[in-house]
Design a binder for these strands. Structure first.
Lengths: 225, 225
DNA sequence: CCCGCGGTATATCGCTCGCATATTGGTCGG
DNA sequence: CCGACCAATATGCGAGCGATATACCGCGGG
């Protein structure tokens, strides 16, 4: 198995196509705010920066457009989707029900392999209460994605992956602000314990609290801008 | 407003791009089983049948692949996704929570325009109990899509649209079989009444019953194949 | 005679490249 | 000052090229 830490950043897998490569790299830039919300996406510029032809870039942008990370207006240009409180609310609205259901399914269908993963993650949470936001963000990603896998539903997984990226960008937006992450940690631990205990109701409720709590924190920072 | 009956079939809107055109037409063929599950998708054939170049077809197929309506294997071919009970269960699993939540939101956010639409639909259900399955299918589509709109959440709407098409294909699969649609009618009416009454809990529960009931009917036909 | 294997043939695909087209913003003329 | 034309820009679409994986066929060995 590859190192988990590398699996999250841009691992140079030569097997994936240039379209996929372009998609992942541009998505990474958008989500991490390297490409700012509202800014124009220059196709030619991306082409020379990524050393990739025009078709793959075009396909990647179409894909990102359908995921609401960019907005393409014919013959006018492509723009990074702006962020606003309305979208935050709408995204959260969907995420709450989907993530909560995924947590329920994960608690229900937990395999021994998944159990080990969650146990390890819980260990990290309990022992090393990292205060670095980026590190916490990475942990949060791992937890969520592991839950998607443990839910044993590829459709749910891909849908949630999309919404997670939308949310992740919002998180990047409030990085370096003082958001209270103490409760998030508690939520995570409660969530993992519930899943490991096979307590579906508690896992679902815990995840619901976690996602709504996340929305509340982001909103606080977002409104004072 | 265009005639609703035409809005559902292939209306020739010259404004949409050829990619969109190709996507919609191929999707229609797949969902309606005109292209059979498991069959190969011949790109050249589609090109001459739709009188469309290669790039739009290619883009449409990529989009369909991401929506799980076709499966593309590099250098081997593209195939219409097969249907099976497992996928039915997984799709339903997601649909139940999303559709139920959409129904809840629709009941909560009902605008006067939406109210009129739902009232009209309810009238049709109460007065003309059509026994034609295709007609019922069309009505079901209208109801669901109207709920998506009434939920006032574009993200939820697009996600549900995707899952609805997956389910719609399954419905086509059991057409001309004797499925009991009497309860479906009752469910629809109860659902619409709940939404019109603004009863969120009942709308959610009603939709939940409706979707699970749908799955049960499809499953019955699917297992005896 | 049958089975396994290697090489070639073929079909498909990913990507590059170029042309047509539509929208915009600026400028020139009235 | 306003309206219309024009150039610039970016996209949509079409066709081809090289790469690659599979399938088939012929050959050699058992």
């Amino acid at each position: 198995m590859a190192t988990p830490v590398m699996a999250l950043v841009e691992s140079a897998d030569p097997a994936r196509s240039q379209s996929e490569e372009a998609y992942l790299r541009i998505r990474e830039r958008i989500v991490s705010l390297d490409m700012r919300p509202g800014s124009v996406v220059n196709e030619g510029r991306l082409r020379e920066e990524l050393k990739i032809g025009r078709t793959p870039i075009r396909e990647a942008l179409q894909r990102l457009a359908r995921e609401n990370l960019v907005r393409s207006i014919p013959h006018r240009g492509t723009f990074v989707t702006d962020v606003n409180i309305t979208d935050l609310a709408r995204i959260t609205e969907v995420r709450v029900v989907l993530e909560a259901h995924a947590a329920r399914l994960a608690a229900e269908r937990l395999s021994s392999a998944d159990r080990k993963c969650f146990t390890d993650l819980l260990q990290v949470l309990e022992h090393g209460p990292s205060v670095d936001q980026r590190e916490l963000m990475r942990l949060d990603q791992q937890i969520h994605r592991q839950i998607y896998v443990a839910a044993r539903n590829p459709f749910l997984e891909s849908t949630l992956e999309r919404y997670f990226n939308l949310s992740l960008r919002l998180w990047y937006l409030v990085l370096d602000r003082d958001v209270s992450l103490r409760e998030a940690l508690e939520e995570h631990m409660d969530l993992l314990r519930a899943i490991l205990a096979g307590d579906q109701d508690r896992a679902e409720q815990s995840m619901r609290r976690h996602v709504t709590g996340f929305e509340r924190e982001i909103r606080k920072v977002l409104v004072e801008r």
